[in-house]
Simulated scan of single mutants.
Amino acid sequence: MTNCIIMHTRNSMQPNDLERIARQIRLRDLQAVYEAGAGHIGGEMSATDILTALYFKVLRVWPEQPKHPERDRFVLSKGHVALALYVTLAKRGFIPEEEIHTFLKPHSRLNGHPNCNKVPGVETNTGPLGHGLPVAVGMALAAKLRGATYHTYVLTGDGEMQEGSNWEAISSAAQFGLNNLTLIIDHNRFQQGAALKDTNDLAPFASKLVAFGWDVTEINGNEMAEIVPALEKRTARPHCIVAHTNKGHGISFMQDRVDWHHRVPNAEQYQIALAELSETL
């Protein structure tokens, strides 16, 4: 009965419902960063809409059975935004919501990078960039070999796409015809310490993925009406979603500012951000 209720709720979610949940997740993420005195709030804000759409609309998952064999797989390759995933998992019922207060505290299982041995709903440990997509390719290939029906999703950062391991994985996914794999690139145009264009600018991504044999969809990654159809899209080849997002999305003084990659708001900034995120709830 519980599974039926979960599936019904997930299927009935409309864009405005998802937008409300995303705002709640952003607000709790902000509070947790401020409480912990650490985090990667800029990238967490840019990725929240994608995480919300996945966990509250698209993914076939069962929070009370986090290892259900038929579950879809999601890999957070940009593991430094683990807090956004923790808040999403808590809101979806995988872990207690009050546990978010323990983020980064001694003996907490909510570390700065997700750990699949400690946190229900986390599929694999991530942190070193360029690891998540190769693991996701393995998951998708395993499903093909076993005849399993689950779909694998993986979220990377655009700066992370500078890692050569990602392009080896992209080539392999095309070679093996992994049409059960969706890569989402959080294209917020900034990485730690610099804009993407000032480091190793691989954008535009779409033409490169097409050249590797992938299907590609470009969307506004902070717009639910575009996110959900892209995530639900199925093609004959591996699918990449280039999600154009804003670093620090939803908080005026953080948006598109490279210094908010892992900066923590002071008391005055916290109150401003709190007010901005709360006024739309």
Rank of each mutant, 00 (worst) to 15 (best):
Met254Ala: 05
Ser207Ala: 15
Ala236Cys: 01
Ala195Tyr: 12
Ala243Asn: 02
Lys197Trp: 01
Trp214Met: 08
Asp215Ser: 13
Ala236His: 06
Asn200Val: 13
Phe205Glu: 11
Pro204Ser: 10
Phe253Ala: 02
Met224His: 03
Asp186Ala: 07
Leu231His: 00
Ala225Asn: 14
Gln255Leu: 02
Val210Glu: 15
Lys247Gln: 12
Ala203Cys: 07
Pro204Tyr: 05
Ile185Ala: 08
Ala230Ser: 02
Ala194Gly: 00
Gln192Phe: 09
Lys197Ala: 13
Asp201Gln: 06
Phe205Val: 11
Ala195Gly: 11
Ala230Glu: 02
Phe212Met: 12
Met254Cys: 03
His249Trp: 14
Arg189Ser: 09
Ala236Leu: 10
Asn220Tyr: 05
Ala236Asp: 15
Pro204Glu: 04
Gln191Met: 06
Gln192Asp: 04
Phe205Asn: 11
Ala225Leu: 11
Ile227Tyr: 00
Ala206Glu: 15
Gly248Trp: 14
Pro238Asp: 13
Gly248Lys: 06
Asp215Thr: 07
Ile219Asn: 03
Gly250Gln: 09
Arg234Asn: 08
Asn220Asp: 15
Asp201Asn: 15
Arg237Val: 03
Asn222Ser: 11
His187Gln: 12
Met224Asp: 03
Arg257Glu: 15
Gln192Cys: 06
Ile184Trp: 06
Asp198Ile: 00
Val210Asp: 08
Trp214Gln: 07
Lys233Phe: 07
Ile241Asp: 03
Arg189Leu: 13
Asp201Glu: 11
His239Pro: 08
Leu183Pro: 00
Ser252Tyr: 01
Ala206Gln: 14
Glu232Asp: 07
Glu226Asn: 02
Gly221Ser: 09
Ala243Ile: 04
Met254Glu: 10
Val258His: 02
Arg257Asn: 14
Asp215Trp: 01
Asp198Arg: 03
Arg237Phe: 12
Gly250Asn: 11
